[in-house]
Design a protein around this nucleic acid. Structure first.
Ligand SMILES: [Mn+2]
Ligand SMILES: [Mn+2]
Ligand SMILES: [Zn+2]
Ligand SMILES: [Zn+2]
Lengths: 158, 158
DNA sequence: ACCTCTTTAAGAATAATTCTTATTTACATA
DNA sequence: TATGTAAATAAGAATTATTCTTAAAGAGGT
């Protein structure tokens, strides 16, 4: 039971369906791809390419940052990972492909997942259905997380 | 009645409250600031800095791109404009500060506003209220707009 | 009109990402 | 298991988006 919590899907399962997806998309199963995917799949913080690279360097000292970028782009094209939309300049990524939403702390930039089934079941306003064909709808909540609230409190007291 | 549609607020009104806000924030009312704000306020497409610059060059041939970036950053700090969150590398902006949501065409990158009062009235899942203090919640819908659907149809037939 | 501080334009610099190329590797096949 | 070949990687150069530096221009108060 020492595996990271990842919704209901275990890392093992994710790795297996990842390998399967690569094979059927004719993507070679390189050490780099496997490790980059694994690192992202175990991360819960929606890391940017650089963060991912920094983490991976510990066990793969020759991994290039370019490979991380290139690989993430390839994965995204094949819908194996998602680029997360943010207001910041560095792109951030996630391996969690199932429907979920984000809370973002505007102070520390932490992005957390959450579920909102009753929203998912909601149907969009009528005029939007005219607009075109919709592939997905997501909520982003912005605010300040507890940790940052505490920190800002301390600063005030200084 | 020839003014651009801007929700219910007219451009005149926006310009007036903009000038008022600048004065009370001790921001000098320069020609550049007025024109950049006006251009963004009349745009309905959430332009990036470069697009805005290109449009403004027609009437202000010496305006520098740096000024557009710097000015938008200043405006954003003072909550006079908003940076829109996207998955693309170029930042996009809007002057519409009232609560609204976005539909984004993944093909042509067009961003359209829409209202969703019943969503706004919805309260967020309980576990999120524990997370920290929330400043806003917004929906982003992704899909393909009618125009792009039509174009893709043509391509198929070729 | 003049002073002072802010803002601007221009170009240099930086940050994030992508491209080029020589080398290495995965994996299909013999 | 060895070999051939296309795909992928590492390294560094290049590009794109944005920010910084500095000298000159302008806003707004007196
Ligand atoms: Mn997520
Ligand atoms: Mn908008
Ligand atoms: Zn935080
Ligand atoms: Zn479109």
């Amino acid at each position: 039971m020492s595996e990271k919590k990842r919704g209901n899907t275990s890392l093992q399962q994710m790795m297996e369906s990842f390998e399967e997806a690569c094979r059927s998309a004719d993507l070679k199963l390189t050490h780099q791809r496997l490790e980059i995917y694994r690192e992202l799949a175990t991360a819960t913080d929606h890391p940017c390419a650089e963060t991912l690279h920094r983490r991976l360097l510990k066990h793969m000292p020759t991994l290039s940052l370019d490979t991380v970028y290139r690989t993430l782009a390839t994965f995204a094209q094949h819908h194996l990972v998602k680029k997360v939309q943010t207001v910041d300049s560095q792109a951030r990524f996630e391996a969690e492909m199932s429907q979920h939403h984000h809370v973002i702390c505007d102070s520390c930039k932490e992005i957390m997942d959450f579920q909102w089934g009753s929203f998912d079941a909601f149907s969009v306003p009528g005029d939007i259905e005219q607009w075109g064909s919709i592939t997905n709808k997501n909520v982003t909540i912005h605010g300040t997380c507890r940790k940052c609230q505490a920190t800002q409190q301390e600063v005030k007291q200084t």
